[in-house]
Amino acid sequence: MTALVEARALTRRFDPRLTIGDRIAAAFGATVETRPVRAVSDVSFAIRKGETLGLVGESGCGKSTLGRMVAGILPPSGGAISVDGQPVMRGGHKTTTRIQTVFQDPFASLNPRRRIGATISEGPIAHGLVTRAAAPAFVADWLTRVGLDPAVATRFPHQFSGGQRQRVAIARALAMRPEILVCDEPVASLDVSIQAQILNLFLDLRAALGLTCLFISHDLSVVRHVSDRVAIMYLGRIVEIGAAARIYAAPRHPYTQALLDSVPKLRLDAASVEFRPIAGELPSPLSPPEGCAFHPRCPRASDLCRRERPVLTAQPDGTEVACHHA
């Protein structure tokens, strides 16, 4: 099995940018935050050709930062990302068009002052995938493929609903003929009925084009639906990764178990429901706990967990888990 996308020891820190005001305040004894945020620490994984890897975690776990590095939008502080062995970034710039991205908020990712036809054809024209003369037919073809009327090419983003805008964003990404699509919360801001339409469109196009995907979402049921494998992130690290069916059926990491337990399930019986919430809150990424980052909230934590950080270890069923007590 060959990996198409490979992430090796990806790390991303954000150093606080101190203004002159901050420095003066600090000189006078004010508390100014100077610690770096470690958004992603030492993350490695591979995505096989044609596979969809789901990336799940709560806010602040680093999943979007990781997605932006994979997409070649954000340079890593350490480690590297490659496609077919070729680095995605060189000298802080993306070197390939083989990866494209669909973002959560299509209102923010589409230029509000440009007609959507021009938005869709801009990249392909610049990269020689289509001539300027052939662009209108090219745009019409892509609009049709994402379920929009070709006549809307002359409209502006504000003339579309949220679901339609997400279709435009998908058309723009796929018009670049990528092999790999990074989707960062593509349905998070949509209503349930529109979310189903966009998920169906995604499934159809993924099959038709043979796409390889990194699908990022906080919604566990959406990720289960589209993913072959899933990775669960906590405080900048992957704590469990493996086949989606296995992880959802029998999660091994206590955080994955707690996360799956916390999701409200659709209850069709009248029985009363006991919620089993995870105790406590996400610690600050400015000062992650020593040892296993989950130990302050973990029911199984031991002295070992407080001292030593567990590494991802392969289990008999093929999943990898970072836990001393899995």
């Binding site: 349930v192 998920l199 499934l203 049921s221 639906h225 589209v226």
Partner: peptide, 12 residues
């Protein structure tokens, strides 16, 4: 429309 109501990977 809920993904939880369908088989994984199938159209909703």
């Amino acid at each position: 429309s809920l993904p939880a109501m369908a088989e994984p990977g199938q159209r909703l």
